[in-house]
């Protein structure tokens, strides 16, 4: 069984001449009568009756003209029926295709297409796309439309092209110029059969608007202007400056801005633009002074509100237009400068007494007007209360002696006016005269009622008229005496060393040994604050120790004593910032480091006479120098300044006393009193307060270090997890005297095992080579080892040492401190062999030796 268009007919034609177009036949007809029937569209469905069948012969005829655009094909269902009307066969389909003829022209979707394009657009820029349809058979030549521009207005030169297949209109070139033609009209034809001569056509119109761009440079109507103005006058419309611009009117491409290039430094002028006319109005907003500026040249330029188009931006050159301004002199008359003047008049002044002179100034010459007295200017009194004064040529005199009645009516004060008049110019200026009346007494103020003689101090604008009464002279003498006392006061303040004296004068801490103060004592600090010992920098001392073990409360004593012992010689000390450094006086650069120095400690150090500015500067320099050595080196690798306090303490990693709870406490009895006390603290026992500082330092007996302080020490290293012992942080610092100061180093965890902190601090010199050795420290836990080595051994091979027996499967706490006595024979190393099954080991070794050449050594096996 196969299906195909079995038959075809052409639309628009009479196909009856080819009837019958088909016939059906069933073999059943050989045995019985068969009736053939057809059904479907065009038969028993609209359009009816297109096809009919001869029921006997099965011949199918077409009866009328068909339209493909109405019914592109027909499906005729054919049946064979017996006499009872029953189907003898399964129905068959006969498909009849209607063949297309080009009976439909193209139709544009719009009568007039509207488009727009910027002038100066590049060639082949898409402007618009036309749309037209054809009702003939799709994908048939009869419906294939070809577009063509058949007319253009203006027709100077073709400016557009059209794609014959897609209908896209594009620019032919980049010569579109709105200033030449702002509108184009195209007539476009669409023809089917791909534009063939036998095709059908339709036409449409396209209207293309050319958009403006700022491709015209504005210019002024005139190349120069000359104007004349009077001085001291304002003008709202001094000059109209018209701007010529060819771009689209009222657009930003056309609107101009006139601006001053030079000449208006005094801000006398402004230019206001009229956006409707593109005319600028030059205004005088600040009066010109002929005496100051007689002529000036304004250089102005013009531009548009909008930026210039890229096509001309390279052509733009600022054109300067000159406006020559001539300032005319105006005779201004005179003016009182200042506008008022105060005189003192007392009761003893007689009639015709000259009170003073009050002259107006001629504005043209700047001179007092008495130069022209009786010639150009005359003076008269204006407001003259009680008619007290007379003026002549600026000289003010008393008409009569001021009486007590006048004094009372004037309420002790006279205020009048004087006029300076230039008759020919008809200009007048006014000055105010104020007189203070002194030496008058009302009935209640009469001197007979007072035992004290009144003091009259009259000061007039004329310095020659200064009068002092006896009491005034006395006041002056008192003033001189006070001034004389000042040097004596300064001298007495300068002796700031006197206790309690010189309040307000703070001695500058400049490394005086006496500046080591009482806080450097052994004992706990209030509030459990970690002590920070800041070095005292002796003048000219280049040796700086940057590390101090502050794990013990006697660190302070250590530092202070050491500095006393060392005196002015090779002096080494340390400084460790557990919480970072930051003070208000610190440079900004320092504030990049997190954390702050705890204020208490800083204050203590400052109070102790430390040069904090030096310390801050020094550490900042160190930090940046270290970071600058290698750009890839994180700056936080250098200065071990951290601030993790408050975010979790690594207490469990470095000797928190909590782990002691599970232990046999008896061993604590064998420890030194300090450790024992700390253990008591940890166990919640009642303890005595800390003892006073030990005056016999350095100690001759071993004293345990406070585990809590060790804990704080470790908290200064962020690499130690507060919860999980997985990081080993070891810092070693050895500071021999002489150049080459070693910096604190942060050693990455070589094994990833837990929580071993080793600190060494040596503040000595000589050949001392202390060392700390750890062997197989995997899985160590909670071991605090402290060794302190102190002694002024000269030239001896002093090695700080601490040997710890095997800790495999042992207890978790070993606290050992050994003090190396001066001159004693010392083992060579500090060794902790195989602390397996342990974690959280803190070892602190300090060797203090005032000899040179000491080298710190610390080794850890892999």
């Amino acid at each position: 069984e196969w299906i195909k268009f079995a038959a075809a007919c052409r639309e628009g034609e009479d196909n009856s001449k080819r009837n019958p177009i088909a016939k059906i036949h069933s073999d059943c007809a050989a045995n019985q009568p068969v009736t053939y029937r057809i059904s479907g569209v065009g038969i028993d469905q609209p359009p009816y009756g297109i096809f009919i069948i001869n029921q006997k012969t099965g011949e199918i005829n077409i009866t009328s003209i068909v339209d493909r655009e109405v019914t592109p094909f027909f499906i005729i269902y054919c049946r064979a029926l017996n006499a009872q009307g029953q189907d003898l066969e399964n129905p068959l389909e006969l498909r009849v295709r209607v063949m297309d003829i080009n009976d439909n022209p193209p139709v544009f979707s719009m009568t007039t297409f509207l488009g727009q394009i910027e002038e100066n657009s590049n060639a082949n820029t898409l402007v618009m796309k036309l749309n037209a349809t054809d009702a003939d058979e799709p994908n048939n030549l009869n419906s294939m439309i070809a577009f063509k521009i058949i007319r253009q207005e203006p027709s100077d030169s073709p400016m557009f092209t059209i794609n014959r297949k897609t209908g896209e209109i594009r620019t032919m070139n980049n010569f579109l110029d709105r200033e030449q033609y702002s509108q184009y009209s195209l007539v476009v034809r669409g023809s089917d059969r791909d534009g063939g001569a036998d095709g059908m056509s339709a036409e449409s119109e396209c209207s293309i608007t050319i958009l403006d761009v700022n491709d015209n440079i504005p210019y002024l109507e005139q190349s120069s202007y000359d104007i004349t103005i009077e001085e001291n006058t304002l003008h709202s419309q001094l000059l109209q400056i018209r701007v010529i611009d060819l771009d689209e009117e009222f657009s930003d491409n056309w609107k101009a801005i006139i601006f001053f290039i030079s000449g208006n430094e005094g801000n006398w002028f402004e230019i206001e633009m009229n956006e409707r006319t593109n005319v600028g109005t030059l205004k005088v907003v600040k009066p010109l002074d002929y005496e100051a500026v007689k002529n000036l040249q304004l250089c102005i330029g013009v531009r548009n509100v909008a930026e210039f188009h890229q096509s001309i931006i390279s052509q733009y050159r600022l054109t300067v237009t000159l406006i020559t301004v001539t300032v005319l002199n105006v005779v201004k008359g005179c003016v009182f400068q200042p506008g008022s003047k105060t005189f003192i008049v007392d009761s003893r002044m007689e009639a015709n007494h000259t009170v003073g002179e009050f002259l107006a100034t001629d504005c043209e010459t700047g001179q007092a007007t008495n130069k022209f007295k009786n010639v150009r200017y005359r003076y008269v009194m204006g407001n003259n209360p009680e008619n007290l004064l007379v003026v002549d040529s600026g000289i003010i005199t008393l008409r009569n002696r001021v009486t007590m009645e006048q004094y009372e009516r004037l309420n002790k004060r006279y205020e009048g006016t004087v006029l300076s008049i230039h008759d020919s110019l008809q200009r007048t200026c006014t000055g105010t005269i104020i007189m203070v009346l002194c030496g008058f007494w009302t009935t209640t103020e009469h001197p007979t009622t007072s035992t004290e003689k009144p003091v009259t101090l009259s000061i007039t604008p004329n310095v020659d008229n200064v009068h002092f009464g006896p009491a005034g002279i006395g006041l002056l003498i008192m003033g001189f005496l006070v001034l004389g006392l000042v040097p004596f006061l300064l001298i007495s303040c300068d002796c700031g060393g006197a206790p309690g004296g010189g309040a307000g004068f703070e001695p500058v801490p400049e490394c005086s040994d006496g500046a080591i103060h009482t806080w450097a004592v052994e004992g706990p600090q209030p509030g459990g604050i970690t002590t920070i010992c800041v070095p005292q920098m002796p003048p000219g001392n280049a040796n700086v120790i940057e590390y101090i073990d502050n794990s013990g409360v006697y660190t302070n004593e250590y530092c202070g004593r050491e500095m006393q012992d060392l005196g002015g010689g090779e002096r080494t000390t340390g400084f460790e910032l557990m919480d970072g450094v930051k003070t208000s006086a610190a440079p900004e650069i320092c504030q990049e480091y997190s954390g702050t120095l705890r204020r208490n400690s800083m204050r203590e150090c400052r109070d102790g006479g430390l040069n904090m500015n030096f310390m801050e500067s020094y550490f900042c320099q160190k930090a940046y120098a270290y970071a600058d050595e290698d750009e890839g080196r994180p700056s936080n690798d250098c200065l071990l300044i951290y601030d993790i306090e408050g975010v979790g303490s690594p207490a469990g990693s470095v000797g928190c006393c909590s782990f002691i709870e599970d232990l046999d406490e008896s061993f604590l009895d064998t420890l030194g009193p300090k450790f024992k006390k700390l253990a008591d603290i940890s166990l919640g026992k009642e303890i005595d307060s800390y003892p006073d500082p030990d005056p016999s330092w350095p100690p001759q007996s071993t004293e345990p270090i406070c585990p809590q302080h060790m804990e704080q020490l470790a908290s200064g290293h962020p690499s130690i997890s507060p919860h999980f012992g997985k990081t080993t942080v070891i810092s070693e610092n050895a500071y021999p005297s002489g150049p080459g100061v070693q910096h604190p180093m942060l050693i990455p965890d070589p094994l990833g095992y837990g929580n071993i902190t080793v600190r060494e601090s040596y503040t000595t010199s000589g050949t001392l080579k202390p060392s700390v050795h750890f062997h197989d420290n995997q899985q160590a836990s909670n071991v605090v080892v402290t060794e302190r080595v102190v002694g002024p051994i000269s030239g001896a091979d002093l090695h700080g040492m601490l040997e710890i027996p095997a800790l495999r499967d042992g207890t978790n706490v070993i606290v050992t401190e050994r003090v190396i006595a001066p001159g004693s024979s010392l083992p060579n190393s500090l060794t902790i062999p195989n602390p397996r099954e342990t974690s959280n080991v803190v070892v602190t070794e300090r060797v203090i030796q005032p000899t040179s050449g000491m080298i710190g050594n610390l080794s850890i096996p892999p």
């Binding site: 038959a7 080819r18 177009i21 088909a22 036949h25 069933s26 064979a80 399964n90 006969l94």
Partner: peptide, 26 residues
């Protein structure tokens, strides 16, 4: 057999042929 034949008109020589384009067998 039930079949449909269509007429093939040869315009050149005016002859007419019938082609069975659809048939089905029982």
């Amino acid at each position: 057999e039930f079949q449909i034949q269509v007429r093939d008109h040869n315009a050149k020589n005016g002859t007419i042929k019938w082609h069975s384009i659809r048939r089905q067998k029982r």
